[in-house]
Design a protein around this nucleic acid. Structure first.
Lengths: 340, 340
DNA sequence: TTGTAGGCGTTATCAC
DNA sequence: GTGATAACGCCTACAA
């Protein structure tokens, strides 16, 4: 159990009776080495359990570490977990390692994580911005050529690549779906704060669908909720209105997780519902939950590939890539309004 | 956009007109520094956007990197995502950074990820072992004092710390719950392969509950399924038996995700069900899904704390910590058998 | 209060 | 084919 020092290149070299450089040559298949020394070196490497120190190597070689940093708001959220999985698949294939941190939607924490990552001399940075955070602090890094890609939400105060869902389009599609089934009073239950990028875009899609259908925009049908409980409260309040909505658009999965039980407890099987973002068990509900499904894994891989492209020298202007979403009809979104 | 070299301690020192050591002193609040030079140094640090290189620092100081490696089978799985979140919360508070990788339950990939982490000279290693993997390759690391903690499943061929769920206890509790509601023929739908640790322990709990209730063990009621689809198929097959089960114990969340829709489609609202591991929307199903809930966040924090304790010099024998589970009754587990 | 020498483990350069 | 030397960026130890 004695904390013995790990063997170094020099240790191996000494034991074999060659110089450190020769060992290095064998391991990196660099210059020419005689078969005899090669064999001997490899034997000693095995015997001592020598592993090259990547810190030292990266320092000497690139001054950039072979890592990619990823900051998400919340690791436990399956959406971000799946995004991270997509990222990791891509970077691992390229021999890069993933550094991860979660900000808890907390701007100072996001900043401090990013700073730590930068101090590690990461090769690229992926960030899902915390609500309300400002990214001017990354300007210098961008100028010095560090690839930075924003995920799910674009940067604020910085021209940088981004990969986002088709939020506006998806919301428009979901609301139009409700309209097509005869609904004219459709509630929107969105994120808080109202300035959150995804909420703004989805609300825009909601309004676009109303305009296309020639329906009025009624602010009293638009509410904010940042967790399932608040969404449930909001639904109960909406259903108690003088002219209640006949359908609900839940603009994120927390909202869905609150609206579904609220409708069930109220015994309101007649209220139509479309949610943004898919959920496990959504198909098993009665009725099944109709959703606008995002593709988090594709978002992760797209962002990682963008980083790799930048690392490979792509110097084109910053651009935002939009990952498509898909309407999955399962029943709740196809309920007709009572009048029909 | 020119990829300018990052400033170093020496750059700052030269610009200020002092030695590198003085700058270092200011930044680390090490020895005494006059207020004048301090101010000047900080100004230049700001002006140049200097950030100390953590790779270089770690190399000089500890020869260990201030990172903790975590390998999970699948990042997108909310269970492991939440575990990772628990880990990250703890290590971040201690100024450590999380290196993450996913093995896809694939032993060679797990091994290669661990090897990469070791080459980075991580300070500690957390592993959720891939199915069927062997950890003798970590013996040398353990002997050299590297803290290693296994998560969710213990190591094979290695004496090391582990943090696991109360699998046997939880399964016994869940099955006893069904027994208490009058069931005598209870199916067990578990993981594949059958050698998987969690499956073995949960099956053991299932059998213990049967013994306690004086019920016979019927192998034809025990099936393996590694995804929701297979679980659904298994349920249909079980219900078609001459003497079908009146209750099902779904030994993991994939099994639950298959059993719930299978029962719904078969119109079998009379079959009782208890699942191992909780799911979002579980409460909204009709009937609500009764589960044995695990505590993944607690598992993550417990494992991280164990690593930190080892890092702080705890040299006691390897031990396995068991995180409690809780039965959450929601309806599906309280359905009586038809005969009752 | 500040500076110099040396080294962490690796690789680049240029000899032999 | 192989080796000595210097250097990556930082900090420890020891002066001045």
């Amino acid at each position: 159990m004695a904390s013995t020092r790990r063997p170094t290149l020099a240790d191996v070299a000494e034991r074999v009776g060659v110089s450190a450089k020769t060992v290095s040559r064998v391991l990196n298949e660099d210059g020419p080495v005689s078969e005899a020394t090669r064999t001997k070196v490899l034997a000693v490497v095995e015997e001592l359990g020598f592993r090259p120190n990547l810190m030292a190597r990266n320092m000497r070689v690139g001054s950039r570490d072979s890592t990619i940093g990823l900051v998400v708001p919340e690791l436990g959220n399956p959406f971000f977990g799946t995004v991270a999985g997509g990222v990791e698949d891509v970077v691992r294939d390229r021999g890069l390692t993933l550094l991860m941190g979660s900000s808890g939607e907390h701007q100072p924490l996001e900043h401090s994580l990013v700073t730590t990552f930068l101090a590690r001399r990461i090769s690229g940075l992926l960030v899902v911005p915390a609500a309300g955070s400002d990214h001017r602090y990354l300007r210098r890094e961008r100028e010095s050529g560090l690839p930075v890609v924003f995920l799910d939400r674009p940067a604020t105060g910085l021209a940088a690549d981004a990969v986002v869902s088709a939020n506006e389009d998806g919301a428009r599609m979901g609301v139009a779906h409700l309209v097509a089934h005869g609904h004219r009073r459709i509630a929107f239950i969105g994120d808080r704060p109202a300035t959150l990028y995804t909420r703004k875009m989805r609300l825009r899609g909601y309004r676009a669908a109303l305009v296309e259908a020639g329906l009025p925009y009624d602010p009293s049908l638009v509410v904010a909720a940042h967790d399932p409980y608040a969404a449930g409260v909001a639904v109960r309040r909406l259903l108690a209105l003088a002219t209640p909505p006949t359908a609900v658009f839940a603009a994120n999965n927390f909202a869905s997780l609150g609206v579904v039980p609220a409708l069930a407890e109220a015994g309101r099987r007649d209220v139509a519902l479309v949610g943004f973002d898919d959920l496990p068990l959504a198909a098993v509900l009665e009725p099944g939950l109709t959703v606008v499904a995002q593709n988090p894994a594709a978002m992760g891989t797209a962002a990682a590939e963008q980083i790799l492209a930048r690392l490979s020298g792509d110097r084109s202007a910053a651009r935002t890539r939009t990952v498509p979403v898909a309407l999955v009809a399962r029943g709740s979104g196809e309920l007709p309004p009572p009048s029909a």
